[in-house]
């Protein structure tokens, strides 16, 4: 007896991911298109995609589509440092802009102030807003950044695909008063404070990206793992 169609369809898509027809970071055809192509019900497609998401091969973003997952960055980079809660799928499509580095980001990212940066701002939500994220990426280092679906994949995931991967990060955590914009976007009352986490990602030559996270502090904690440095004493 044949396997149920959703399992067969899952294997078909899995094969296409494996052979590169659907490559990492790319968007799959819509559920409806897949259903039409194979003459199955959209529910069958949905079930197959859900299984692939469970296996970690796809990222499903409600209202946007299915994306082939990027391989995870180096475990070491993932595990150490401040870790933020992931925030689930409620990402609105965020627009990537171009801007000049200006005096401040030029210093932070070791570029000329006339150089161009990609800039993106978004709010990551679970049931309620978790944090606002502001991203500054050196354009000449990641020229195709806007096409890599930066609103679907995390920056570290995207940068892990580059030829010169991230080799080190520096992070700074402060508490600051929420500006009016942060209050509005995170739905916080006036007078609230937020955790401000600033992170710089470096490849071997220097800084690639700078990120600022404003985290609501009512029920969020940042976690850190640390270890005794072998040279300490």
């Amino acid at each position: 007896m044949n396997k149920p169609y959703y399992l067969q369809l899952k294997e078909v898509i899995q094969e296409k991911i494996k052979d590169g027809t659907y490559s990492p970071g790319k968007e799959l055809p819509s559920e409806r298109q897949i259903a039409q192509r194979y003459g199955v019900h959209p529910h069958t497609t949905r079930a197959a995609l859900k299984l692939l998401e469970k296996d970690g091969l796809l990222q499903l973003v409600p209202g946007r589509g299915a994306f082939v997952n990027l391989p995870s960055p180096d475990e070491n980079m993932k595990e150490l440092g401040f870790t933020l809660p992931e925030g689930k799928k409620k990402r609105k499509k965020a627009k990537v802009h171009l801007r000049l580095a200006g005096p401040y980001y030029a210093k932070i990212l070791h570029v000329e102030s006339q150089e161009e940066l990609y800039y993106m701002k978004r709010v990551v939500k679970e049931k309620k807003p978790l944090y606002m994220e502001e991203l500054f990426v050196v354009k000449k280092k990641v020229p195709d950044f806007p096409e890599l679906h930066p609103d679907v994949f995390s920056l570290s995931n995207i940068l892990a695909q580059k030829e010169a991967p991230i080799s080190r990060t520096a992070q700074l955590l402060k508490i600051c008063d929420a500006s009016k914009e942060v209050q509005r976007r995170l739905k916080l009352p006036a007078g609230s404070v937020v955790l401000l986490l600033e992170r710089t990602d470096y490849d071997r030559e220097g800084p690639v990206a700078f990120t600022r996270y404003y985290l609501q502090s009512e029920d969020l904690a940042v976690e850190v793992k640390f270890r005794k440095s072998p040279t300490g004493e």
Binding site: N76, M77, L80, G81, F82, S167, R168, T169, A170, Q171, L172, L173, K174, I175, C176, V193, R204, V224, F226
Partner: peptide, 14 residues
């Protein structure tokens, strides 16, 4: 108290 405090975390070089 938060006014005079920050925490840093720098990963090791490869």
């Amino acid at each position: 108290p938060y006014k005079f405090q920050a925490f840093r975390y720098d990963s090791e070089d490869d």
